[in-house]
Design a protein around this nucleic acid. Structure first.
Lengths: 249, 249
DNA sequence: CTCGGGCCTTGATCTAGATCAGCTGGGTGG
DNA sequence: CCACCCAGCTGATCTAGATCAAGGCCCGAG
């Protein structure tokens, strides 16, 4: 069942007739535990495609591409962004293992943003028409899809509030930490897979401001940051700073 | 939902056995045109509850209330917002006739924000468990729900970008205009049902800034605004200003 | 009718964060 | 080994928009 040793064969999964749900796929757990009969699980399994690896800087989809599929990140980090006609990049989100990209494309049948790999990225790809059709027969799967979509609305609302640089940065670090923790990674020590500029474009700051906030947080003893490695040394205070931003989550 | 406010004629609508979809309900059109058989349409109809009116300042639900239902606005305007522990109000959205509130509550089973009527508001209330169950039998309805959810993700992303006061204000006016137009109201002359402060809290501005931007837009001949009445006099330029904000929509 | 209280506007000042400029240091290719 | 380059850091300055202050206007209550 470990997907670590699954080879990155593109196209349909390479394990013939067995069920091999990868542990990171957001759908697997929810559906497995619902106790569906084997033929439905097989249906779900068949419409999964394991794709990758995408290398740093490679695009998974681009703005305007026709929408066909959503994808769960198995490993690596994906950044979604749009570029406005003055060349400013607006980062919409970072997607860690277990998280699903492409959900905001459903309404227009086109991807409304670009998705790019920040490091080496493996994905589980689900044809959306197929998974939606299957969901009509698996209420648990439908429920899971509704939840994922609803969750993303909340995530976006987070960013949109009127908060200071410190508050937004603290919220960013805390959510990263929680998301890593949810996947079994260390909540207090992790790698920032994105550049300072990416963080800045996500938090609506200048990259210089990101640097300065990091430094100030470090001088205050809240974090220890060295290049891309970061350690949260005082979660209490970070959570306190972040609490207003995260309240609506 | 529904404080002490549920009106007489609670429950099933007052038109006996006929189907009487209200024209504003976001689901009706999509489902009607899909040509489902009569019994399914009846199911959909039965789980609708028409509630209201809510008067200006009355709450429809509050942050933390258990989530049971989504609701389509039939008339009036609903504002959703959260208050942080410094008392700052963060407006998350304004909902016009035809639009659906409560979608972001699915993932946590609680409403993550407050919803308040800005004027006299009538709603169609749909029990979420019931409509989700029905959706498994009506792919068109499921599709509609997915679309609505996905749309809201995009809407939230709009706000979260890094744009100037002018850009955000122009985008706000253009989207309002488009949404009114979609419901058959005049796209160029409409009423701002919210206060300047509400607009400010939505656009992450101070209310003084909202005033000043209105004045500047008016002096530039792009709009004519008098108290709550506004007329868009130069859509071209407004759309141009808004285009970067709206690109990802 | 007058009074009072929101809501809105306008002007003056202030500041968080942007922008500009210059520097550093690690990683990579030759 | 060096040379270059780009991510990141830091200091100096600038500015969009916040904040503070002062009226004005509409509207509802008495």
């Amino acid at each position: 069942m470990s997907d670590a040793n699954r080879r990155p064969t593109p196209g349909i999964a390479d394990d013939g007739d067995e069920f091999h749900f990868c542990s990171t796929c957001a759908f697997s757990a929810a559906c497995l535990e619902s106790g569906y009969d084997k033929s439905l699980l097989r249906d779900l399994h068949v419409l999964v495609e394991h794709i990758g690896p995408f290398h740093e800087g490679e695009h998974i989809f681009r703005e305007g591409d026709p929408f066909t599929a959503i994808a769960a990140v198995r490993s690596g980090t994906v950044k979604t962004y749009v570029t406005d006609h003055e060349g400013r990049e607006h980062v919409q989100g970072f997607f860690l293992p277990g998280e699903v990209i492409g959900l905001n494309a459903i309404s227009q049948a086109r991807y409304p943003s670009n998705a790019v790999a920040l490091d080496s990225v493996m994905l589980c790809r689900f044809s959306f028409p197929n998974i939606a059709a299957l969901a009509t027969r698996m209420p648990g799967l439908q429920q899971q899809l509704f939840k994922l979509l609803s969750l993303d609305i909340g995530k976006a609302a987070l960013l949109s509030g009127n908060f200071s640089a410190d508050e937004r940065m603290a919220a960013f670090l805390i959510t990263l930490s929680r998301r890593y923790a949810a996947r079994g990674f260390s909540p207090n020590r992790f790698l920032l897979t994105m550049t300072r500029t990416d963080i800045a474009n996500y938090l609506r700051l200048a990259s210089e401001t990101v640097s300065r906030v990091f430094r100030r947080f470090q001088d205050d003893g809240m974090i220890q940051v060295e290049r891309r490695e970061i350690e949260l040394k005082d979660r209490k205070r970070l959570e306190k700073l972040a609490e207003d931003v995260l309240r609506s989550t």
